[in-house]
Amino acid sequence: MNDQRLLITGAAGTVGTLMRPRLRRPGRVLRLLDLAPQPAAEPGEAVELLTGSVTDAEVMKSACQDVDALIHLGGLSREDTWEATLDVNIGGTHTVLDAAREAQVPRVVLASSNHAVGFRTTDEGGSDGLPADSSPRPDTYYGVSKAAIEALGSLYHSRFGMDVTAIRIGSCFETPLPLGERGLSTWLSPDDCARLLEACLATTSPGYRLIWGVSDNARRTFSLAEAEALGYTPRDDAEVYAPRLAAPPAPDGTLAELVGGSFCTAPLGRHNPL
């Protein structure tokens, strides 16, 4: 029986780096693609290291050969110019999906973001949390690109029958501390992120799904129902870090009520705070 081959774009980025050790499995080969340098394989680690851009059709065509599933983390992870965002995030995702289609990759997981709905309010979902399929209200060019990524995933499912799951990630870091109090709501722990990705890979015929990627945080304002329907069982809660946070400043107007937080007022086209 052949090993499962899992292609991960953006493998040298923050989330990709956190996922590399957590997605190792017997019988699985990780094919890791990034423009940035990547650490060499450790003894016994089944990895294939590729260097290239998600915007390069030939690179993606080669990377998608003999792949069983694709996790697309590649692209700009923060606000940037419209031109760069259009080229890398939107154009790059189109290139990735088209290469996957040509190579008949049956399953794709796309990294979307809370910033696709950044101008929604944190109380819109009531006690159940903001539904994962809430229509886009992006807060930045970056948020627009994530909404476009979701739409591309839907298109490639409907047109070509690919199973596509788009995950609106809250914030995935080792701890929620870099994000301050907001992180106590949006945090997706690295371990829970791996659990969520495994659920996306294992579920039978998901079709097209849009889900939230967050841990089971006590202050969570996002719905977990859609992810749990795929078999996701989160185990972590950002609240354990609350005592380590300094007293937060007074909320700045309505920013505390908006999903996107400070992204909603930061200048468009420039690198924004977390």
Rank of each mutant, 00 (worst) to 15 (best):
Ala111His: 15
Ser205Lys: 14
Val109Phe: 13
Thr140His: 07
Ser154Gln: 14
Val88Glu: 00
Thr85Arg: 02
Pro178Val: 04
Thr81Met: 04
Ser127Met: 10
Gly153Asp: 02
Ala116Val: 05
Leu152Pro: 02
Ala100Gln: 10
Ser112Ala: 15
Pro206Thr: 06
Ser185His: 08
Gly143Pro: 01
Thr204Asp: 15
Gln104Leu: 07
Ala100Thr: 08
Ser171Gln: 12
Arg159His: 08
Asn89Pro: 04
Glu181Pro: 07
Leu197Pro: 14
Phe173Asp: 13
Met162Pro: 08
Thr204Glu: 15
Val144Leu: 07
Ala194Arg: 08
Met162Cys: 04
Asp128Tyr: 08
Val164Ala: 06
Ser158Pro: 00
Gly91Glu: 01
Arg137Asn: 04
Leu196His: 09
Thr175His: 08
Ala151Cys: 02
Tyr156Thr: 01
Asp98Val: 01
Leu130Arg: 11
Cys200Val: 04
Asp163Phe: 05
Glu174Gly: 15
Gly180Thr: 12
Ala100Pro: 09
Ile90Asp: 07
Ser205Arg: 15
Ser158Tyr: 02
Glu181Trp: 09
Ser205Leu: 05
Thr140Asn: 03
Arg159Tyr: 05
Cys193Tyr: 14
Asp98Pro: 07
Gly92Arg: 03
Asp123Ile: 04
Val117His: 06
Arg195Tyr: 03
Arg168Asp: 08
Gly207Ile: 01
Asp192Pro: 12
Gly143Val: 01
Ser189Gly: 08
Val105Arg: 14
Thr93Gln: 10
Tyr141Pro: 00
Glu150His: 04
Ser134Asp: 06
Thr121Leu: 03
Glu124Trp: 10
Ala151Lys: 06
His115Lys: 13
Asp133Gln: 05
Gly161Leu: 01
Ala84Tyr: 01
His157Ser: 01
Leu155Ala: 10
Asn114Thr: 08
Val108Ile: 13
Ala151Ser: 13
Ile90Tyr: 07
Ile167Met: 13
Ala99Ile: 05
Ser189His: 06
Gly161Ala: 04
Cys193His: 15
Gly161Met: 02
Val96Ala: 11
His94Val: 03
Leu197His: 15
Ser113Trp: 09
Thr81Phe: 05
Gly126His: 13
Lys146Ala: 01
Thr204Leu: 06
Phe119His: 15
Lys146His: 01
Pro136Thr: 00
Phe173Ala: 12
Pro136Asn: 00
Arg107Leu: 05
Leu184Met: 12
Thr85Cys: 10
Thr165Tyr: 12
Arg159Met: 04
Gly143Ile: 01
Ala194Cys: 08
Ala111Ile: 06
Trp187Ile: 02
Val117Phe: 04
Val144Ser: 02
Phe119Asn: 13
Arg168Thr: 06
Gly126Met: 07
Trp187Pro: 09
Pro206Ile: 00
Glu198Thr: 11
Lys146Ile: 00
Val96Glu: 07
Gln104Arg: 15
Pro178Asn: 10
Thr95Asp: 07
Ala151Ile: 01
Gly91Lys: 03
Leu86Arg: 15
Ala100Gly: 11
Ile169Val: 14
Cys200Pro: 09
Ser205Val: 03
Leu152Asp: 05
Thr121His: 15
Thr81Cys: 06
Ala194Gln: 10
Val117Glu: 07
Gly129Thr: 10
Gly170Asp: 09
Tyr208Pro: 02
Ser134Leu: 04
Pro138Glu: 02
